[in-house]
Structure formats: structure tokens, C-alpha cells
Design a protein around this nucleic acid. Structure first.
Ligand SMILES: [Zn+2]
Ligand SMILES: [Zn+2]
Ligand SMILES: [Zn+2]
Ligand SMILES: [Zn+2]
Lengths: 137, 137
DNA sequence: ATGATGATGAGAAAGCTTCTCATTAATATA
DNA sequence: TATATTAATGAGAAGCTTTCTCATCATCAT
């Protein structure tokens, strides 16, 4: 991801925006809260305000560069848009996030909305799990 | 639903608790935010504090009398437990909520978690729609 | 380089929810 | 029924996440 993507989105290429993108790309967590992005910025020596992080993430979302999820626990989490839709499993013990795709579920959803006479706009599917590792301990 | 259900749940039978139950039973909305329950209580002439409404709803949730959902929009919504699991469609225009069940999706979910080696604890599936009525206007 | 425009940072403020604690109500017992 | 014990309530304060405000600053086109 580079400055061209910001320009295409109609956003000025600024230092804070580049830095936030960089964090999202290089962090070992694909799914991060605004607070986590903020702390990662500080740790990497970038002085970016928390308000700016929120602003920028929201703009990225509108621009389709990032998607936002509301898992349980109060904080929204953000991830770089991958192009292909996917859903999530979240461990209720350790918070680990795993992605999956399932075409059977996707098409069932479309069918359900359609049969009820509604237009499906989007959906949110989260499986809360006790993950492999947390079951051992 | 009556005082016996509260006793069974290990909760004292108090006026505020009875009143909240009554609202949930008699309101024409099955899915209500704490704020909505609170306002309904005031309108019905009951002087119950907002903090109590939150407290009571949370206790009801722990007791399995009520379930809580976090649809988009900040506020949690609550509904009386029906005994059978169901998922929701929420209209992004008017906020109307519809319920559905789909065994194919349910079993697919179990399969996904299991194949990944995880234990499925619970799940949240919300279809955001433009409802039948909102499409007309 | 300059100016116009938009972005930023800091703190204030908003919105939802929980906490605190003095007061009050509900149950158990006599 | 009166009393004692224990838990619940109400009001406001406080917490947490997120957004807003506004003076300052950076970006980009010229
Ligand atoms: Zn885990
Ligand atoms: Zn993801
Ligand atoms: Zn609608
Ligand atoms: Zn429901």
C-alpha cells in the first residue's frame, strides 16, 4: 500500500496517514483497535494524536481501505481491506482472531433476506470460540 | 413470566425487577435498549432509575431470562429469552428488527469451528438490510 | 516560494454503561 | 406482626470509547 492509494481515495498524503497505514501493514496483528494502533505508533517513535488515529481510520473505512468490526468488548477493531470478504472467529479467552470464508453461509444469508422481501446490505458474523491453545491450559 | 422466575434465578422479587419484566413482556418492541426500557417505565408511571434498569437487565442476562445483542449503533438491545436460539435482521434505515432461524447456517458454524480445532462458545449473526417498507419510500 | 486548503493535536465533550454509597425495601425469624 | 439481616435502589459521579472544536501546522497547486 502506498501514497497512490491515499490520493485515489481523495485523501491528502500526510505523515500521520502514511504512518497508520504502515502500522496496519507491518503489525503482526491483522486486527487492531484504534488504541492499539495509537500505541504502536508511539512505540515506533511517531507522535500522532489519538484523535487523529480515530479520524484517519474512519476515513480509511469510508475510502474502502480498511474495514471495521465490532466484536464484543467495547472497542472497534480495524483491518486492512483484503479484497475478499471474510468472517471471524474470536477466542473469548485470549482474544485471538481467525478469519474464515464459507460460501454456503453467504448464500444462505442472501436467501434469507430475499425470501423475507428485504435487501441485504451487509452482515456481521462472529463465532466466539475457546481456541485450540486455550483449551489445553 | 412471574415472580417465581426471579426466585428461581436467585434474585429477590422487587418492584423494579417486576416492572422491567413487565415492560419487556408487554412492549410492542421485542428488542429494546436499556434507555427504551427506562423511558417505557417512566411513561407507565414507574419511578425506576436508569442505573437500576442497566443493573437489572444485566442480572437478567446472567440468569438467562434475557439476552443482549450488540447491533451497530452503540446501544445494546435486550429481549426476553425465548428458549429457542435465533438470529436477527436489522434495517439500516428504520431500525426494525426481524428474527430468523436457519439450521444450515448453525451447523455450518459448528463445522467451521470444529475443523479449525476450536470449541464454539456462541455466535453473533446480524443481517443488515434495507427492509421491504423502506425500499418503497 | 506563496497561498489556499485541508489535516493535525490537545483537550473538551458526548454517549453509553458501570460504580459508589447512603437510603430503602424485601425476606427470614421470632 | 414486629425485628433484624441482607440485598436492592436511586442519584450522581466516574469510566471508557469515540467524536468534536479550534487554533496551529503541513500539503499541494501555482
Ligand atoms: Zn484463545
Ligand atoms: Zn479479518
Ligand atoms: Zn426499514
Ligand atoms: Zn430476537
Amino acid at each position: 500500500m502506498e501514497s497512490g492509494d491515499l490520493k485515489k481515495a481523495g485523501l491528502k498524503v500526510t505523515l500521520p496517514r502514511m504512518k497508520v497505514l504502515e502500522i496496519l501493514e507491518t503489525s503482526n496483528q491483522r486486527h487492531m483497535s484504534a488504541e492499539e494502533v495509537y500505541r504502536a505508533l508511539l512505540e515506533s517513535g511517531s507522535e500522532v494524536g489519538l484523535a487523529t488515529v480515530y479520524r484517519v481510520l474512519t476515513q480509511f473505512e469510508s475510502a474502502g481501505l480498511v474495514s471495521r468490526h465490532n466484536f464484543e468488548g467495547g472497542q472497534s477493531v480495524f483491518e486492512l481491506q483484503t479484497g475478499h470478504h471474510h468472517d471471524h472467529m474470536v477466542c473469548v479467552k485470549c482474544g485471538r482472531v481467525e478469519e474464515f470464508t464459507n460460501e454456503a453461509i453467504e448464500s444462505e444469508q442472501r436467501k434469507i433476506a430475499e425470501e423475507a422481501g428485504h435487501k441485504l446490505v451487509e452482515h456481521s458474523l462472529v463465532l466466539y470460540i475457546e481456541c485450540k491453545d486455550c483449551q489445553k491450559s
